[in-house]
């Protein structure tokens, strides 16, 4: 895709069958994101934020319409191609951190690079860099159970960005964190956005997050109700 456009959805619809009826999670969503955006999806619970992130991350397929992400049409991607797209270009951050509990901080962050088949020396450097971005260079050997919630989420961020993806999709990344940790994490992500040009897209209820984003998209009942540019901080 040209002129810096990273994501473009066109009349995107997602309908979940529910017994006899069905639930329309997304209705005719038309959105465009450029490289380097730092944008937030807000809206009440059930408005379709997670659904939209999942489709953009090629974890789910739209019912109708199209979603073009990094030049790939998500709706036509094979399972294998979708995996390759995620593997190379997209990082995920979840509300519940979702670190692999039996592995150390270092190994959790290293995992996406193993999947990429990166050579060991390069891998070590990349993991060390990512952990120092999030300020956890001294906790490489810890297990997730030995870390605080904020530290776990920082590991999850390191894991999402270690492969230097173009796009990071974060679903309620601060929902389980206190104000100070939320702030710290947003700082980290802003720095990455600024220094590496990584595009960040959040789904969030959190006012603290909304204060950081430079664009706020409000979803209501699966529709884009508002799309506004903010000053950011």
């Amino acid at each position: 895709m040209d002129n810096g456009i990273l994501i473009r959805t066109k009349d995107l619809v997602k309908v979940y069958p529910l017994g006899q009826q069905s639930i329309t999670a997304l209705a005719d969503v038309n959105l465009t994101f450029r490289r380097g955006e730092f944008a937030g999806l807000v809206g009440p619970s059930g408005s379709g934020k997670t659904t939209l992130l999942n489709i953009l991350g090629s974890l789910d397929a739209p019912t109708r319409g199209s979603a073009e992400v990094l030049g790939e049409k998500v709706e036509t991607l094979s399972h294998r191609k979708a995996a390759a797209l995620r593997n190379r270009h997209i990082g995920f951050i979840f509300q519940t951190f979702n670190l692999l509990p039996v592995y150390t901080v270092y190994e959790n962050v290293e995992f996406p690079l193993l999947l990429l088949g990166m050579p060991p020396a390069e891998r070590r450097r990349a993991v060390a860099d990512a952990l120092s971005w999030v300020g956890l260079a001294d906790r490489t050997k810890s297990k997730p159970s030995q870390l605080s919630g904020g530290q776990c989420q920082r590991v999850a961020i390191a894991r999402a960005v270690v492969k230097k993806p173009e796009l990071v999709l974060a679903d309620e990344p601060t929902a389980n964190l206190d104000a100070e940790n939320s702030h710290h994490i947003l700082d980290t992500m802003e720095t990455l956005n600024r220094d590496m040009g990584t595009t960040f897209l959040f789904a969030t209820h959190d006012e603290k997050v909304i204060r950081h984003v430079r664009r706020k998209i409000t979803l209501i009942d699966g529709r884009v109700a508002k799309d506004e540019a903010l000053a950011g901080s």
């Binding site: 991350g57 974890l59 399972h79 294998r80 995996a83 390759a84 797209l85 995620r86 593997n87 190379r88 997209i90 995920f92 979840f94 979702n98 692999l100 995992f111 996406p112 999947l115 894991r159």
Partner: peptide, 14 residues
Amino acid sequence: EIGIRLAMGETKGH
């Protein structure tokens, strides 16, 4: 774990 690994771009076959 399997969900995360899929999200990180591992294929189901892998």
